[in-house]
């Protein structure tokens, strides 16, 4: 990880990012810049390569080529845990909670990187470990309250209702104290009412000074909340700009043709 020429405004900068699976170009030379404190949306039909782009940013996949700069550092090819430590947190399109752990424990796992307890501290339950545990439990409860599911604190994650599971995933991601939060279709399967509530939550997250990078299928939803949108189709960036412009773009309409949006 070396220093990159810093653009102070941008928190994430992708340069010609490409990910190839055998013959399939899932992400094809995509460049984009996300500014600090904005909501940036990534849209596109199914299979466009949106999730793959997230995976390439967070180190789940090593990009075939291209560069990822986060907060002034080149993080191309970093391991997922290193990326998380630096301050990128994410949720998953198909919810990936720790099913047989309680909600509060799920969030506490998110605190892992910001905790200091070493093996010896834990083995002998040294006072500083106990205090840290107490503090982290408090913080985890606070986050559950923040996303509005505190009453499920002691339930197994798998027993939470679907919508609350999505919220729990967000709380867990927030627990890592990210500078940038990647949300992969956080409103998938939501009723319109739930979607509105979710967008409220995203606004609340913004007020914490966290930049949000959002994948969403529902165009309308995205229009309401994000300053800028990038549209992906067959791995390629086909449009970029403020919502009103993107909506009128001919290629975007074509890509979405046959879809309700």
């Amino acid at each position: 990880m070396s220093e990159a020429p810093a653009d102070r405004d941008s928190i994430l900068e992708l340069t010609e990012l490409t990910k190839r699976f055998g013959g399939l170009l899932a992400v094809d030379s995509v460049s984009l810049q996300i500014k600090r404190g904005e909501v940036f949306a990534l849209i596109g039909p199914n299979g466009a390569g949106k999730t793959t782009l997230f995976n390439s940013v967070t180190g789940m996949f090593r990009p075939t080529s291209g560069r990822v700069v986060f907060d002034g550092r080149v993080i191309t090819g970093s391991k997922p845990h290193e990326v998380a430590r630096l301050g990128i947190a994410r949720t998953f399109q198909n919810i990936r909670l720790f099913d047989f752990m309680t909600a509060v424990d799920n969030v506490k796992v998110g605190r892992h990187v910001r905790m200091k307890a070493k093996v010896w501290d834990s083995l002998f339950k040294l006072p500083r470990e106990r205090h840290e545990e107490e503090r982290v439990t408090e913080e985890a409860m606070e986050l559950l309250r923040f996303v509005g599911i505190a009453r499920f604190a002691n339930h197994y994650a798998r027993n939470l209702p679907y919508g609350q599971q999505r919220r729990l995933e967000i709380a867990r991601a927030l627990a890592t104290e990210p500078k940038l939060l990647l949300l992969d279709e956080p409103a998938a399967g939501f009723t319109p009412q739930e979607k509105v509530e979710l967008m409220e939550l995203v606004r609340k997250i913004l007020t914490r000074g966290i930049t949000v990078f959002l994948i969403e299928h529902d165009m309308k939803l995205v229009m309401g909340i994000s300053e800028r949108i990038v549209v992906l189709d067959h791995g390629e960036k086909i449009a970029e700009g403020p919502p009103e412009e993107v909506r009128k773009d001919r290629r975007v309409i074509e890509a979405y043709l046959g879809k309700s949006a």
């Binding site: 997922p80 994410r90 990936r96 909670l97 796992v109 892992h112």
Partner: peptide, 19 residues
Amino acid sequence: RAWMAIREDEVAAAAMGIN
């Protein structure tokens, strides 16, 4: 907790910053 997280879902555990 990190052990249990890995047991439950290794990918998600790594994404939460667990080595």
